[in-house]
Amino acid sequence: MSFLATPSYPQQNVPGGEPTQRHGFNPYADNGGSIIGIAGDDFLIMAGDTRHTAGYNINSRTERKVYRLGEESSLVLATVGFGADAKWLADTMKRAVDVCFPRLSMMKDFKFQHNLKDMTVSAAAQFLFTILYGNRFFPKYAYCILGGLDKNGKARLFSYDPVGSYSKEGERRAAAGAASSLIVPFLDNQVEFKNQYVPGTQGMTERPVEYLPLEKVEMLVKDAFTSATERHIEVGDGLQMVIVSAQHGVREEIIELKRD
C-alpha cells in the first residue's frame, strides 16, 4: 500500500523569505486484519479476525469485520482495509438491503420499494459494485467479500477490489487483507485442489474439484487463521465466523486466536 504512505518531506524554508508551512493530510489508514469466504454447495462461511491495528498498535481485539446485512437476509458482507471506510460500506449495504432506517435512508431502502421482497445475492453484488465504483475518484479503501444464498439455496460468493471490480460468476473461495498472500495459496491447494493429482495417473489427471462438507470448510477456515496469526502481526485475537446454511439458517461463532 505504498501509495497510502504518509509523505515525509523535510520542512524547507526559503532563505530570507517567510517560513513556508506545508500542510499534508492523508485521508486513509491501514487497519490490518484479514477476511476469507468459502462457499460450499448450500452453505458458506465468511470469516475475519477481530484485531484492529494502527501500525504496531492494537486499537481493539474485538472489532468485527463480518456483517450480516439484515436479520432475515442470508447476505453477509466482510470488509477489510481502512476501518472507517469498511464500516461505512457495511452500513450503506445494510441500509440498502434491510428495513433498518426507512425514514433516514437517502436512497429509499430496497424492501420498502420492492414490496418487502428480499434483495437477491446477485442484485446485492451489483449494488455493492455501484457503491464502490461511485467512489471511483475518492475510493473507499476497503476490500470486500460478499456472500449469500440464491433463490435455490445455492451459496454464492463475490470479491471486490476498492473500486468495485468483481466477477459476476462469483467464486468458490476468496481472501483479502493483510495476510491474504499467506492464505490464498493454502486455499488454492485445499479448496480448489490445485497441484493435486489422482493417485496412480502419473500426474496426468488433476484431482476433480468438488464441494466440501461444512465440517471440512470450518476446519480449513480455522487452520487458515491460526496459520496467519502465527506469521502475521496484524492478524490475531479472535476469529469471527458467520456460517450461512440453507438448512440451518445463519449462525455466528467467535473463537479465540493468539493475542501476541
Binding site: 498472500s181 490464498v184 493454502f186
Partner: peptide, 11 residues
C-alpha cells in the same frame, strides 16, 4: 516467502 509462510504454516 509470504506465500511460503502461509502454505508451510498450514501444511
Amino acid at each position: 516467502s509470504d506465500q511460503l509462510f502461509g502454505t508451510c504454516e498450514s501444511l
